[in-house]
Computed example of a mutant assay.
Amino acid sequence: MAPSLHNPPFIFFFFIFSFFFFPISSTDTTSLIFKGCSKQKFPDPSQIYTQNLKSLFSTLISQSSQKPFFSTSSGDGGTSLQGLFQCRGDLSLPQCNDCVSKIPSMADKLCGQALAARVQLTGCYLRYEVAGFREVSGTELLFKVCGSIQVAGSGFEERRNTAFEMVENGVKNGGALFYAGSYRSVYVLGQCEGDLSEGDCGGCVKTAAEKVNGECGDSISGQIYLNKCYISYNYYPNGIPSISLGPFNSLVFILFFSILG
């Protein structure tokens, strides 16, 4: 008998047990940023959930070679699972497929038989939940990291806010819910989940930018991950390092320099 998923103990919350950073190259897209796992596990000895999860993973991996975002479900009734993946907007389809293909085995090791989980890598993320879980708000803060170096004055806050406005406008007007660019030594990147409208995406990114100001203060680097979008930035007060970024493999670049910060 399937468990009741509408009682308070089964309300889904992300528990960020840990996060890891690794020395990464400018082409790396599969390093773990964070994981979120529900406390509730698949009922034992039933194998229905695990079979549905395997089927869901197989479909998502297959679709990741054809498109950068896809959502679907697996199974019927109370044992069905909903899931999706999304790749960073500057990845090719082969890169997307390679990134998404890494997640199922990682999810099994990191979250075990959790009834809901999200695994976020540098270049993509995948999440799933059993039917009936209470939805998390699109602007729920899932994860943050702020650089330790602070900078005040010199127009930094104004530069960063202008860069964030560029992201907000870019995701609304670019047609891909993704934007990467720079403004006066502030590099920024933002992306929304593929099922959002352009207007909702702009609103989500704006909320993420506001959370940066509140959570990271004057840090010269930071990343804010909300449930439906994220934003990342890095400021170089002493000049931009003489390194080739390529077509904005810069999220990895930003994450790397955030560690140094």
Rank of each mutant, 00 (worst) to 15 (best):
R134C: 03
Q120L: 02
F69E: 01
F57R: 03
N97W: 04
G202H: 07
Q120T: 07
A107V: 03
S26I: 11
F21I: 12
V167T: 08
D28H: 08
I220T: 04
N52C: 04
F13T: 05
Q223C: 07
S137I: 02
D76E: 12
Q86A: 03
Y179C: 13
T207G: 05
P241M: 15
I224N: 07
Y236N: 01
P237T: 04
A107K: 02
L121H: 00
G199Q: 12
Q113K: 15
F19Y: 12
L245E: 01
C192E: 01
L53E: 06
G83Y: 15
L110A: 08
A163C: 11
Q95D: 00
I11E: 10
F15E: 07
L93I: 02
I61P: 01
K67R: 11
E168F: 02
V171G: 01
T59G: 04
K39P: 03
S154P: 04
C96D: 08
E158L: 03
P43C: 05
Q120N: 10
V188F: 03
S65M: 05
N213H: 15
S65W: 07
L251G: 06
T139P: 05
N249F: 01
F17S: 10
C96Q: 04
F14P: 15
G153Q: 03
Q66M: 09
C229H: 06
Q63F: 01
Q86R: 02
L196M: 09
